[in-house]
């Protein structure tokens, strides 16, 4: 269905890792997206500036790659609107409950050899793989 793209995947992964290292080197912060957005709901009002700046950068990222000559990235969401709503609620609630998402646990946490992040990453990846398989079988 989708082509295997190991080179662009590795380059993109390197950029994600480099961004995480940069945020740690200068600001002393974990580049976990759910934590960065979730902090907006906390009492960390003085922290909001850098959090919002990071999110703005994240949104600007695709345009920077377009300026560098790449075409408009494809965004293909097969899920129905009700499923998208359910998925969003689950992702928002779940990532806060387990204190991390793919970036916070899967990259930053694993890079620090955190046993919590290793457990979380295994659980969310296996759960997602099972859900995808079940959905595909259900769709025929």
């Amino acid at each position: 269905m989708h082509d295997f793209t190991p080179i662009s995947a590795s380059i993109g992964g390197f950029m994600i890792g480099a961004a995480a290292v940069t945020l740690m080197a200068f600001n002393g912060r974990i580049a976990g997206i759910a934590g960065i957005i979730g902090g907006v709901f906390g009492s960390a009002g003085r922290d909001r500036g850098w959090r919002m700046a990071f999110v703005l950068g994240l949104i600007a990222g695709p345009y920077v790659t377009m300026l560098a000559g790449k075409s408009m990235p494809e965004v293909d969401i097969a899920a129905s609107f009700p499923t998208v709503v359910a998925g969003g609620l689950l992702v928002g609630f779940g990532t806060r409950l387990c204190n991390g998402c793919t970036s916070g646990h899967g990259v930053c946490g694993l890079a620090r050899f955190s046993p919590r992040s290793a457990a979380a990453t295994i659980v969310f990846m296996v759960t997602a793989a099972v859900v995808v398989s079940v959905v595909r079988l259900g769709a025929g």
Binding site: I16, A19, P62, E74
Partner: peptide, 13 residues
Amino acid sequence: AGTIFGAGLTVSQ
């Protein structure tokens, strides 16, 4: 850092 992160997510699709 956010921009590089977002660009990395884009490049890797």
